[in-house]
Structures are given as structure tokens and as C-alpha cells.
Design a protein around this nucleic acid. Sequence first.
DNA 1: GCAAGGTC
Length: 700
Amino acid sequence: MKKSELKDIIGVEEYSLVICEKPEAARKISEALSDNKYKTMKIFNANVFLVTYKKRNYVLCSAIGHLYTLNLIKKRQKLPRYDYSWVPISKSIKSRAKMVNARIKVIEKLSENASEFILACDLDQEGETIGYNILKYACKEKQNVAKRVKFSTLMEDDIKRAFANMDNNININLAYAGLTRHAIDFLYGMNISRALSRAFMTSSKKYRTLSIGRVQGPTIAYVVENELLRETHVPLPFWSINTYINSIKNESGKWIKIHYIEQKILKNKNAKTILDDCKGEQALVEKIEESSYKINPPIPFNLSGLQKEAFRLYKLNPYQTLSIAEKLYLNAFISYPRTNSQKLPHNLDCRRIILELSNLSEFSDVANKLLKKQHVSPTQGKESDNAHPSIYPTGKTIISELTDTEKKIFNLIVKRFLNLFREPSIGKKRDIYFKIGKYDFYTSFKRTTDQGWNENSSKKEAMIDLAVGDELKIKRMKIVENFEEPVSSYNQMTLVQKMEKEEIGTKSTRANIIRTIIDRTYVNGNELTPTELAKALVNTLKNYSPEILSAEMTKRMEENLREIENNTITSEQVIEKTKKDIDSIIKSIQENDKNIGRVLITATDKLNNKPVTNKPLGKCTICQEGNLIITSNSKNRALVCSRSMKDECNMKSPLPKFGYIRIQKNGCIKCSWPKIRTSYKGKPWNFCSNPECKNKERKK
DNA sequence: GCAAGGTC
């Protein structure tokens, strides 16, 4: 294409080039600036928009997320490798090549004639980075002259305000922070993943992709740690008192269940005493408290809110929900779904959307009721997001093209949206306190008086009419034995929530990263239990690169990035430090590659077999009767004799936090406590479990 | 090949 041809297509001599992060944003900005009177042009199969706003010409083009990625420069063998550069994504991902190349070519062409450059990507670190790379590579070094428009929703007012008050520069330090984040993840991920794969290869002569990274690491570790808790769970017993009394005085009315104030009684003896003491007694009504309660409507969906609800109601995993939400967004049913925000834009025309939604038969009643209100105002949540508002329906209601599952998600979003404007659910509560002998019991009743938004609010439950001083017959009282349950395995939803809580990954990547670790056979599909490979990997990395298994790495990195953003440290300084860390990790992995390889291969051999069940560690070498078991909490673990629970044996010993534990056949020759065999930094290590034993060489 | 982060 020649310059003159491009000029013909665009039709104006002078223009500012506006660079957006995604096609939808370019269109929305064009609409907002031009009162919908913009011109659409197709260049290399990509949409470009021309608008005239306040007598200036703007040509709007868009990326499709990142157009550039990091790449190793040459094929070389030796690790570590630090020779990276930014290249068009097409070079590393073939399937996206055409689309990305087309976008880059369009921007290159348009930048040749542009008199001004304006960055309009999302208002966050990645947005600034995406824009920086486009300005630097596609626009040929315009990152220092480009201007920046800042808006946090794609509403007309916000966009116009942003164009009236644009910054004279992009936030270059924020872009540097973003570039550094990419570099750190790339260098850590590539080098350590490769080092592990090679260690595997030295022992097996077969290639196997082993991966690890700043987010994968802790995520795998959470699954492994959780499983360790489950495997070493000791189901301690506890007791509760199951009590029913008559519901009316001196008559044979319905039975009601009442609760002893202690839900869990830790000693059977105590439960028995209570039962004995209560024999022959009556339940005396001691106190009645009445109160009313209010349940406010729910808050707007952000992505994780939607994922949680879709999982709860339909067992859709977060990845499925995100995929469906993306499709709904691309077909204009809903707003942008990859958002943290729980707030609707303040100037959203909610009434119009409600009116459109009233066309849906399922929601017409609720919508029509809302439309009768004088004004509608939604609830708002706490979370916010600079780049996007919460998820809401756009008002498009032609749902015949949607599959059943897509309809479910769409309906969930519509229902939530409408509920935001409805009245709270109100009810009454009555708490009744009893004395049986000297023991305290209670029960409570709820009754909804105005269900408001909450159609599922508890149906009218009978409020038992009792008065203080009433005495009621005990109909049944017995002791029930229960056992402490182990923690649950993660599923895809709870693992996403764990990642969210620990602040690793992002709304757009968490569900994907879980898929990656499933693909790598680190964790099993539905109930996310770790495979032997994951356990071996985590144990290995604990020795050689513990930081990559911990969310602390992300925290420290983000502190560094903030410093880059504030210009108190340079990107180069941070990357130099990263390289030093990687140097020593790679060195120690290489020095122990045979050991590491052997451990990983042994683990992969077990992948197709049934996982080894918690086999007994052997008889206690002190009392010769109990079994040795490992107990643990989230911080420590210990070797104990099963009889120590009943104080019949005093074998209790702290264990090293990590590593596979084996017990030697014979006890210590000095003190006869069990001897433990484990490995420390890849080397076998034997020691006596007795903390007091003089014949020991314990390590910290 | 390997990461994590955007987006179609």
C-alpha cells in the first residue's frame, strides 16, 4: 500500500493517532466523541475509525491486547539465558500470526502520517506497557512524545473529559515497571523450567515439559500442602448433645430441637455428666429476645463474583465461566467481563437497560416493578478497577442464538443486575434461651416479613409462642459422637479464590494457570489433588528455589515495581538482581541434576499407577505397640506414636518441614527412639527423632 | 519447549 492510497482511504490530511487496547474500546471511544457519526475503514482486515471532535481529526486504531512478547534471541544451549528481546507475538504463536501482524502493519502505516500520538489503552500497568511497546516498535520511538488519555469507564462523559484533559506524556515509569514484570517472569520461568526439564533428561534420556513460574509455583504448593494436611489428618472425636423438647406447655405438641451452648464437647466424660445431670429436669424458658433483620440486595458482579455464583449454582468451573462471559461480551450482551470492579458507572442509563430487559419474559415482572419506581439506584460493592466497571447487561435481549449454558450465565447476570435496584429483604428473629438444670440451651426462629429482592428468603417459619418461665418436657436427649473432618481438597473455584486471597495471578489468568498445571499433570482434574510429580517437584524446589513456591516473591516483585514507578530504583537494577538470583538457582540445580532427575522420574513413573496410599510408617520403636504417624498443621509437622494421643506413649518429635520421611527399621542405639531418613538439599540425611538424644546430628 | 499477562 502506498502513502497516497492510505490518504485516500482515510480522507484527511492531518490527524492524531489514538491507540486503544482492544477493538471494542476503539469503537466505543469513536461513538462517544462523534455522537455516533464516525467513519469506519477496513485496513488489512482491521477496523479503523475516523472522528472529528472539536475540529480535530482523530484516527482510532486498536491492538488486541499485547502485540509484542519476550523472546530468546538465539538458539543456544547453556543456561542461564538472559538474551531476550521484544518481538511481535506472531513469532512465538503461529496461530495468532496473521491477526497480530495485520494490526501491527495497520499501526505502522497510520503512524507514518500522524501528527500526534495518543495512548488510550486500559488505565493500568499492562495497558501502559502494551501502549509503550506499540509506540516504540510500531510507531518508531514515539513513547516519549505520545500523550495519554485517562478514563476509567467507556461512558461518553468520561471519554470526553479525558480528551479535554489529556496528559502530555504517557506514564513512562509505569511502563518500565510493566516491562520489568514481563522480564522477571520470563527469565525466572524460562530458565528454571528449562533447568528442571534438563535435569529430568539427564537421567531419563526422554524429554518432558516441566514448568514453573512465579504464579504456578505457589499454586502447585498450595495444592501439595493441602494434600499433606489431608494425608496426615487425625480425626479427633468430639461430642454434642442432641436435644428435643416439647413445643407447648404440658401438652403433646410438636417437638423442637434446641442446642447446648457448646457445639463441640471435647471430652466424652463431660458430655455424659451433662446428660446425667439433666435427667428428670425440665427445660425452663429463661429469656426471649426479639429482633428484626435486614438483608440488603447483593452487589454488582466482578469476574470472580460471577465465577463463584456460576460454580455454586451450575458447577461451572472458573475457566468455563470466563469463556462464556467473553463470548457474551463479544456478542454485545454484557459489558467487559475481565474486571475487578463491583461498581456500576455512575452515569450508566440503568432505566434504559431495565426497560430493555423487561422484554425477557422471565424477568418482565421484576423489571416492570422497578420501572414504576421514581428513581432507581443500584447497590455498589467495595472493589474497584481503574480500567473497567463491574459486569452488567447491555440491554440486548435477542437470546435465541445462545446455548443453554450461555443462557444460564446471561440470566445470572441479568438477575443480579435487576436485584441491585430492589428493596432489602426484612424479617423477624426470636432467640429463646433455656435452662435445663444448670445448663444453658437455646434455639432461634426466623420469619420473613417482606422478602424484597430475596425470593429464596426462608419461608414463613412458625414462631413458637413461649413465655419466660414456661417449663417444657424433654422429649429426647442423647450424646452424638462426631469426628473432626480433614480440610477439603481444592476445586477449581476454591483454588482461584485462594490465589485471589494470596494476590497472585490476575482476574484474566488465574483460571488459565490452573488449566496449565492440570495439563502438566501436576494436579488431577476435578478434585484438585496433587500428583506424585507435583509432590516431588515441590520437594525439589523447596531445596533449590523456595522463593518461586511462595507468594512472597510476587509481593517483593510488586514492591520493586512500585519503586520503578516512583523512580526510586531503575528497571536495570531490579533485573540485575533477578539475574543474580537465577544464577545461583541454576547453578545449584545443575550441580544436583542427577538427584533431581531421579526423583522426578520416579514420580512420573507413578503417574499412571494408583497413587500410593498413606502407608503406615512402622511400629513405634519405644512402646513397640503404637503406629508411627505424621501429624501436621500449616506450619509444622511432627512424628508421633498413635498411643501418644491417649498419653500411653511419649514418642513425639518435630520433623523437618519438607521432604519425604522414612523410618529406619531399628531405633536409635542410644535411646531407641525411631531413626528418621530424609534428604536435605538433595543429600540423604539420617538422624534420631529424640530431641534430647545425645547421639544425634540434627539440623535446623 | 519453557512464564505471565493482555486479548481474539
